[in-house]
Structures are given as C-alpha cells and as structure tokens.
Amino acid sequence: MDLKPTESELEILQVIWKKGECSVRDVHDELSKNKDSGYTTTLKLMQIMHEKGLVVRNTDAKTHLYKALISREQAQQGALDKILSTVFKGSTSDLVIQALGQHRASRDELDAIRNFLDKFDGGQDKE
C-alpha cells in the first residue's frame, strides 16, 4: 500500500486513530480546538480520503462514520520514506543526527534508541 496522506489528511487521521470511528462533526470539532477550518472543508477532505482509500465510511446510520484504513505506523513509514529520500537524499545518519541535534530526547528515548541500535548492530554481519 503506497498511500501518502497530505498534512491535512494526517491531522484528520490523528483524530480518527485517537477516537476510532468518527463522524465528520467529531473530527471537525477536534480540529477546531487548534485551528480555524470550516466544516465543509473537513467534509470534503474526508470524502477525498475515502476515495483515496485512507478511510472507510460506514453508511448504515444517518450519520456516516469514518474509520482509518491506514495505520499510524504505515503513515509514519510513508512520511519517513519521503523525507529520507527528498530532504536527506537517502542518508539515514544525516536524518538521525539532525533529529537528535534539534530535539532534546528524554533519557528513556535515548535508552530505547541505544537498545535498538544494539539489536540492529547485533544482526549485522561482522567483518
């Protein structure tokens, strides 16, 4: 599945991932807490997302309910692949160095990164 949601679609997906099935009103009310956008804009975006296969729409009830067809992990992977290839020209080390240099990681996050690197390094062929 090669679905790459736009920034606005990701904002909508964040709400759906958090709440599960949502009506357009549910999503719009949540988005309105942080930014000014019209209900019809949210409705149109969610219709487009349905056409793209990012969400499924349950039309059994009067109020249509939307559910994500793409997981948070799939969206993160797609966004990371795009950033890695376009912004960092495929350099994983540049991406990691930039991320760690610009954003203060907590002790737990650094420990998790070290553990991952230890596992990753252990799986590599030693020369």
Rank of each mutant, 00 (worst) to 15 (best):
L3D: 05
A105D: 09
A61S: 15
E109P: 03
K18I: 06
V56E: 15
R107S: 13
P5Q: 05
N115G: 13
K52L: 10
D36Q: 11
S106E: 14
A112N: 08
W17R: 05
S106D: 08
D118L: 10
C22W: 00
D60Y: 11
G101I: 05
I113Q: 01
F120R: 05
G90F: 02
K82P: 04
K67E: 15
R114H: 14
D81T: 10
H103N: 13
R57H: 12
W17Q: 07
E109H: 04
Q14S: 13
G122F: 04
K33N: 06
T86V: 06
V15E: 02
R104G: 12
R107E: 15
K18C: 09
N34A: 13
M46Q: 04
E11L: 12
R72Q: 11
F116K: 09
G53N: 01
A99G: 11
G78W: 09
D118A: 10
M1A: 11
R72Y: 06
D2M: 12
T59R: 14
M49L: 04
T42P: 03
Q76G: 14
L95V: 05
K119R: 12
K4V: 09
L31W: 02
R57G: 08
R57W: 13
L54E: 01
S85Y: 02
L43R: 13
A75N: 00
N58M: 10
S23F: 01
D125C: 10
E51P: 02
A112D: 11
I12K: 01
L100W: 11
L3S: 06
S37Q: 09
L54Y: 03
K67V: 08
L117Q: 09
K44S: 15
T42R: 01
F116M: 15
F116H: 12
